[in-house]
């Protein structure tokens, strides 16, 4: 498969948030301010890429030869959770300033369905190593892009005159609806 095509598709037309609904909790929870969503996006990007690589090797060289593919969910969630922990420790030790800005988002990532979702999609689509790399970078970049755009819109929504019952989450969903419409048009008819 064409790698550039795969990258663009995973960022725009098959955006993980807007078409596959992965990572909804941070999408609506964290996206209240710009800086926060940017930090969250970066952290998710790193974790997705690294854990995609590790799970690719684990799946193809440990689970498949030993005929225990059904253990993938258990194993993958373990990999992701320990990755997040490891990552937290390394950043805390070596990059103090980065840890201060990312710190609170890291524990949230292990229960972020975008990570497990992308890892599972890699396996389901039977990607090769290069495709795994492209797809995970692409889809996590898509996550970051969408969550950042969404947070800038939400900052303006705070001051908009909206019917009282629709303030907060309902209008956020409707905003997401318009974004999803725009993104799905990238497929072209």
């Amino acid at each position: 498969m064409n790698l550039i095509g795969l990258f663009i598709t995973s960022v725009l037309a098959e955006n993980v948030v807007l078409t596959k609904f992965l990572g909804m909790c941070p999408f609506f929870g964290v996206s209240k301010d710009k800086e926060g969503s940017f930090g969250m996006g970066l952290a998710v990007m790193l974790v997705i890429t690294l854990s995609s690589l590790v799970t690719y090797f684990l799946y193809n060289y440990v689970l498949v030869p030993s005929d225990t593919e059904y253990l993938r969910t258990l194993l993958f969630i373990l990999v992701i959770a320990s990755f997040v922990q490891l990552f937290d420790i390394i950043i805390k030790k070596n990059f103090k300033s980065l840890h201060n800005s990312l710190g609170i988002y890291l524990p949230l990532i292990s229960t972020n369905c975008a990570v497990l979702g992308v890892v599972l999609l890699n396996i389901q689509n039977k990607f090769t190593l290069l495709e795994v790399l492209t797809y995970s970078i692409g889809s996590s970049f898509g996550f970051m892009l969408v969550i950042y755009i969404f947070s800038t819109i939400r900052e303006r929504l705070k001051h908009a005159p909206i019917i009282r019952s629709f303030r907060g989450l309902p209008i956020a969903f409707i905003t997401a609806f318009i974004m999803a419409l725009v993104f799905s048009r990238y497929i072209g008819a």
Partner: peptide, 22 residues
């Protein structure tokens, strides 16, 4: 039934529930 419609339905249902609760 498309992905975008999911957001719209959810938003409308949430808003209507808020209205009813009030």
């Amino acid at each position: 039934t498309s992905p975008a419609g999911a957001f719209l339905t959810m938003g409308l249902v949430l808003g209507i529930i808020n209205m009813l609760r009030k």
